[in-house]
């Protein structure tokens, strides 16, 4: 995780996540400040697989840096987590 690399933000756009809120998460880029926007790489995925075995309670799912999973993601919660993770990254 070098300093030059962007933080990967994967938004699950599978149908289940979509109807339980990911339709709003699609616009995440619009709600981020320009400085934050430059440091993230937002990608939509057709299914991250977290709803498998019929567990949709946690939908919609967002995964940061390919390791941190946010359940019941909202634009606010994802933004806060992004800020927190970037701070950690900078502190290294």
């Amino acid at each position: 995780m070098g300093n030059g690399s962007k933080l990967k933000v994967e938004i699950c756009l599978g149908t289940t996540c979509f109807i339980l809120g990911a339709s709003e998460l699609q616009d995440l880029a619009q709600y981020l400040e320009p400085e934050l926007l430059d440091r993230v790489d937002i990608v939509g995925r057709t299914c991250l697989g977290f709803c498998k075995d019929r567990k949709f309670d946690g939908a919609p799912f967002v995964r940061l840096d390919e390791r941190v999973v946010i359940e019941r993601a909202t634009v606010t919660r994802v933004t806060e987590k992004i800020k927190a993770m970037l701070k950690e990254k900078d502190a290294e």
Partner: peptide, 17 residues
Amino acid sequence: FEELGALFAAREINLGT
């Protein structure tokens, strides 16, 4: 559309794939 979305989710149909 809400009911249709729920039907897709219930049947685990992922349209994007």
